[in-house]
Simulated scan of single mutants.
Amino acid sequence: MLSGEGESAAEAARLADLAAMRLLDQPGDAERYLRQAISCGSGTLTDEHLARLSSQLVMVMSGQRGRETELAEAAQQAAARWAGISEPDTVHLGLVAARALHRAGRHSEAVAAFAAPLAAHTTPYPPLEMALVFGQYGRSLKLLGRYRAAAQQFLDGARLIATDPAHRELCAELTWSAASALDSCDADDQARDTYLRAARLWEELGQISKRARCVRSAAWLEFWSDPAQPGGPAAMRELLTELEYLERTAPSAVVRIELANTRRQLADMQES
């Protein structure tokens, strides 16, 4: 190594040490030192050393609100540095970038950023965290009008946590989101089945209102497939019976509201 390169490497190491001492209590200073270390060490430090410094920079920035776009850029640069060195780090940092773009409302860029790390078919996080990732990806896709692709992401996320009772509520939310996305792309049979699946999950959680809304959505899809059904769709009639029973045995404001909504919508169907 030439003397100038040696001096640059030494200065980069010094700056990295200064950053390490400030990571927890002075993130602004740590970020500044890390950026200087990366700049100073480019061309002199090893690729892996630069990648580690870039990861530290992302870690410092990730705790600061309102900097999602900057965080995404830093994470993408760090992912590029880890490429060919460590696939798990490349995937993790690619997802950090995608999630930051999602939070920033830059959904077209987020969708592109999610695609590459998820295509690696690795699971860098536990099932709950991966379910949240799929949910964010699905929401970005849905906001872009890519409903069928969004539904697949929601379903993949729900599937990861389907057997864990501790995450039943998130599973229900993801399943409901999948049903709504399928409803939006005219996949009526799949949407109806998925609404009913979400309704069963909400029933397990004792969520009367959310269960009723899912059942009514499924009933409307059933109705439009066969408007001539006597008395309206079976799902709607069964829901009405359940809510009337609850009104007699365990009355509440929620039950009264959902019972009124169900009666009104069933009447709309019967008048159509």
Results as ranks from 00 to 15, higher is better:
Q26K: 12
P27Q: 13
D29E: 15
A30K: 04
A30Q: 09
E31M: 11
R32C: 06
R32G: 03
Y33L: 05
L34A: 09
L34G: 02
L34N: 01
L34P: 01
R35V: 11
R35I: 11
R35A: 09
Q36H: 12
Q36W: 10
Q36I: 06
A37Y: 07
I38A: 04
I38M: 09
I38Y: 01
S39D: 14
S39R: 13
C40V: 10
C40R: 13
C40N: 07
G41R: 00
G41Q: 03
G41P: 05
G41L: 03
G43V: 10
G43E: 09
T44R: 06
T44W: 10
L45P: 00
T46A: 12
D47C: 05
D47P: 01
E48K: 11
E48V: 10
H49L: 03
H49P: 00
H49Q: 15
H49F: 02
L50E: 02
L50I: 04
A51D: 02
A51H: 01
R52I: 02
R52S: 11
L53A: 04
L53K: 00
L53N: 01
S54L: 02
S54G: 14
Q56T: 05
L57E: 01
L57G: 00
V58F: 03
M59G: 03
V60G: 05
V60M: 09
V60Q: 06
V60S: 05
S62F: 05
S62D: 13
S62E: 14
S62L: 06
G63Q: 11
G63F: 09
G63R: 12
G63N: 10
G63T: 09
G63S: 11
R65E: 14
R65N: 11
R65S: 13
R65Q: 14
